[in-house]
Simulated scan of single mutants.
Amino acid sequence: MKAIAYTQHGLPIEDDNSLIDIDLPKPVPGARDLSVEIRAISVNPADTKLRRNVATSEPRVLGWDAVGIVREIGSEVTLFQPGDEVFYAGSIARPGSYSEFHLVDERIVGHKPSSLSNAEAVALPLTAITAWELLFDRLGVAENGGEGETLLITGAAGGVGSILVQLARQLTHLTIIGTASREETRDWALQLGAHHVIDHSRSITEELSRIGIEQVTHVASLTHTDSHYAQLIEALAPQGKLALIDDPESLDAMPLKRKSLSLHWEFMFARPLFETPDMIRQHQLLERISTLIDQQRLKTTLGEHFGLISAANLRRAHAFIESNRARGKVVLEGFPS
């Protein structure tokens, strides 16, 4: 089968060898696996970070967002049947979805929203899981809760921010403040449901004062946490909650003590990586996301379509992600004939 992999980490994405086309044997499903024929993928910052930073002794296939059709099922599979259209984000401990066929545990897979195309649907799984777990599991906001509380989302127009804004607006009563530094990303966040958008290239506390908000109760820091950390602590009300998803070089928790702030890290691969007892919650939340999409309460976060799934197009997609100028998600669809 066709696949795209890297063999040497750390190469600049402009190097033709940073991602290459290869052929691999078609994988055989284990007991709880689905064998999925891949129709579309999307590219996440996790893909680019692994390619840059993680050494490999053999070709490593990246990619953890997929839409496809179930072709085979393992002996213990109960949630899906061959022919089902599915979407999912996979496990970081297994080969990725840059391949014609892909194995994934059924407990982290959902039925694809019927109202979306493959490209529209594949923009959602990884970021939707991240946003859902961050909002409801890490920050502890209850569905239909949040009355009188405020959520600040840094990087609200990115992949995770684009779905987090929607989830918070549709399923809670939080006041949502997004951050963006360009007019197009500001408009995007407002269209998705943010009540306010402030400029994170300026002082966050001054920007909050400008819109009449002195403190917030919850912060979702999605990018450049190390740059904004002190300001986010200043902006949080006593006993507030800070959750992040990025990778600051270091993080000193001591400044949180004075306000009795809590710190939460969201890593959506934790459940499949450790096969936690509640791993099936990712199946359940993807099913819920699919229903909300088909009810037109949520919409796709597709930002850019980069064409067929090939090494050349994936190099372009990685370069775009690394530019930090992506709005929504970057997707690719179909393999060259």
Score class of each variant (00 low, 15 high):
274 F>D: 00
280 I>A: 12
269 F>I: 01
275 E>K: 14
221 S>V: 08
293 I>G: 01
16 D>G: 09
251 L>H: 05
94 R>W: 08
233 I>R: 10
297 R>Y: 05
89 A>I: 00
237 A>E: 08
117 S>R: 04
204 I>C: 04
294 D>N: 13
154 T>C: 09
157 A>Q: 04
168 A>Q: 03
304 E>W: 05
124 L>A: 10
133 E>P: 04
302 L>S: 07
32 R>T: 14
203 S>I: 03
170 Q>T: 08
27 P>H: 03
110 G>Y: 01
248 P>E: 11
226 D>M: 12
295 Q>V: 05
106 E>I: 02
37 E>G: 02
14 E>C: 03
142 A>G: 04
187 D>L: 11
269 F>A: 06
168 A>E: 02
199 D>R: 01
103 L>R: 03
41 I>N: 00
258 R>T: 10
101 F>T: 00
11 L>H: 07
316 R>F: 01
255 P>G: 13
291 T>E: 12
50 L>G: 04
308 L>I: 05
115 S>V: 06
127 T>F: 13
296 Q>G: 06
167 L>P: 00
125 P>K: 09
153 I>H: 11
283 H>Q: 09
129 I>C: 13
308 L>R: 11
296 Q>A: 15
285 L>R: 13
272 P>W: 07
147 E>Q: 15
328 G>V: 07
77 V>K: 02
187 D>P: 00
